[in-house]
C-alpha cells in the first residue's frame, strides 16, 4: 500500500513541476484567414524578431465566451486578442480586459480618436458591405436595394447569422438615410421595417459564421451575393477570383487590440500594442490586407491604388460608422428576434 502512495505522491509532484515549468510563449488570438496572415507578416513576426522572443497564434471568432472562461477559471491562455468594439466595451466594463496605460503608447496623438478606448487600442478599420461574383451577373449590383432585390439578382445570398449590421443594411435598402439608421432602428417600427425587408429574401438566405466563408461560397457559386468584410474580398480578387466589393453605404467599424486580464505576458503585450500603433507597421499591414489604418499618418504613406480599396478617404464619404453603443443596449432583444425570424 505504501508503495502505491509513493507512486501517487511522486507523480503528483511531477505533474505540478511540469505545470510550473511550462512557461508559454506570447499568445496572440486573431480572426484567422488572410486577415491573420497579414497581421503575422506586418506585426507578429517583426515584433517577435525585434524582441528576440517566440510567439504562438490561435483563432478567435468573436464574442467573450473564451475570455470570460479564462477570467472565471483563472487560467488565462491568451495575451492579446483582436476584438470588435462592442465586445471590447462589454469586456472592459466586466473587468475581462486590462486597462490600457495610455502613457505607454507614444503614438496616441497620431491615432484616430475612435481608436482610443479604456481597455483597447483601435488598430484596424473594417469595411462591412457586400460582394458578388462578377461572372454571375451581366449588370453589377450597385447598392443595398439591389442586395434585397431577388428579381433583379436571383439566387442565394449569404449574411452573417446575427442582427448586427444586417438590420442596418435592411434599413439602408429600404431607403433610410445613413444619418438616420440608428434612430430608426431604436424604434419598434424601425425594427419591424428591417425584418420586413429580410422577409423578402427569407427563402434565399444562407448564413455564414467565419469571415472566409463568403469568399469560398462566392467563388464556388454556392451563393450569388454575400455580405462580407472588404479585406477578404479584395484580397481574393488580387489572387485572381472574379469577386467585386460594393462600397456604396458600407458600414465601417474598428477592431481593437485588448489584453485579457491577468495575462502572463502583459508587458510584452503592451509593447506589441505600442509597436502596431506606429504608422509604418500599419502601412505594411494595409498593403498586405486592404483594411484601413487607425494611425492618421499612415494614409499618406500608401499608394493611391491601395487607398482606393480601403475603408478610408473617398470610400467612407457615404458610409455609416458602426454604433457599438446601440448594439450593447439592443443586442439581446434583437438577437432573440433575429433567431426567431431565422428559424421560422
Amino acid at each position: 500500500m505504501s508503495n502505491v502512495m509513493k507512486v501517487i505522491a511522486v507523480s503528483g509532484i511531477a505533474v505540478s513541476m511540469a505545470q510550473g515549468a511550462q512557461a508559454r510563449d506570447l499568445t496572440i488570438a486573431g480572426w484567422g484567414g488572410n486577415y491573420q496572415d497579414a497581421q503575422r507578416e506586418a506585426y507578429y513576426t517583426p515584433f517577435a524578431d525585434s524582441k528576440g522572443m517566440a510567439f504562438t497564434e490561435t483563432t478567435y471568432l468573436g464574442g467573450l465566451a473564451e475570455v470570460k472562461a479564462m477570467a472565471d477559471t483563472g487560467n488565462v491562455t491568451w495575451d492579446l486578442v483582436t476584438v470588435e468594439g462592442a465586445d471590447l466595451q462589454l469586456g472592459c466594463d466586466e473587468g475581462l480586459f486590462e486597462v490600457i496605460p495610455w502613457e505607454d503608447i507614444p503614438t496616441q496623438n497620431e491615432l484616430n480618436p475612435n481608436a482610443i478606448n479604456e481597455c483597447g487600442v483601435g488598430n484596424v478599420v473594417i469595411g462591412n458591405g457586400y460582394a458578388y461574383n462578377a461572372e454571375t451577373f451581366a449588370d453589377a449590383p450597385q447598392d443595398w436595394a439591389d442586395f434585397f432585390d431577388t428579381e433583379k439578382f436571383p439566387g442565394k445570398r449569404a449574411v452573417r447569422n446575427l442582427p448586427k449590421w444586417n438590420l442596418e443594411y435592411a434599413l439602408l435598402a429600404d431607403g433610410v438615410a445613413v444619418d438616420d439608421v440608428y434612430d430608426v432602428l431604436a424604434t419598434p417600427e424601425g425594427v419591424d421595417r428591417a425584418f420586413a425587408k429580410f422577409d423578402q429574401i427569407k427563402d434565399d438566405v444562407q448564413f455564414w459564421d467565419a469571415g472566409s466563408q463568403p469568399v469560398e461560397w462566392l467563388a464556388a457559386g454556392n451563393v450569388v451575393l454575400s455580405t462580407a468584410y472588404n479585406g477578404r474580398i479584395i484580397t481574393a480578387k488580387a489572387e485572381g477570383q472574379p469577386l467585386e466589393f460594393v462600397w456604396k453605404n458600407h458600414i465601417y467599424s474598428i477592431d481593437s487590440w485588448a489584453i485579457p486580464t491577468g495575462a502572463e505576458h502583459k508587458d510584452a503585450a503592451l509593447e506589441f500594442i505600442a509597436f502596431v500603433s506606429e504608422a509604418e507597421p500599419q502601412a505594411k499591414f494595409s498593403e498586405l490586407m486592404p483594411y484601413g489604418p487607425t494611425n492618421m499618418k499612415t494614409a499618406g504613406m500608401l499608394a493611391d491604388d491601395i487607398v482606393k480599396d480601403l475603408p478610408t478617404g473617398k470610400n467612407t464619404e457615404d458610409a455609416l460608422f458602426f454604433s457599438d453603443a446601440f448594439w450593447i443596449d439592443h443586442s439581446d432583444a434583437l438577437t432573440e428576434r433575429w433567431n426567431n425570424w431565422a428559424t421560422q
Binding site: 464574442g63 443586442s331 431565422a342
Partner: peptide, 25 residues
Amino acid sequence: PALTGGPSDQMLSYYIADFVKKSLN
C-alpha cells in the same frame, strides 16, 4: 448541420453554442 444546413435546419446544439459564444448567456 452548421456546415451543410440552412437557417431552418439548425439543431438545438447550435443555439446552445450560440448562447455561450455570442451572448455569454
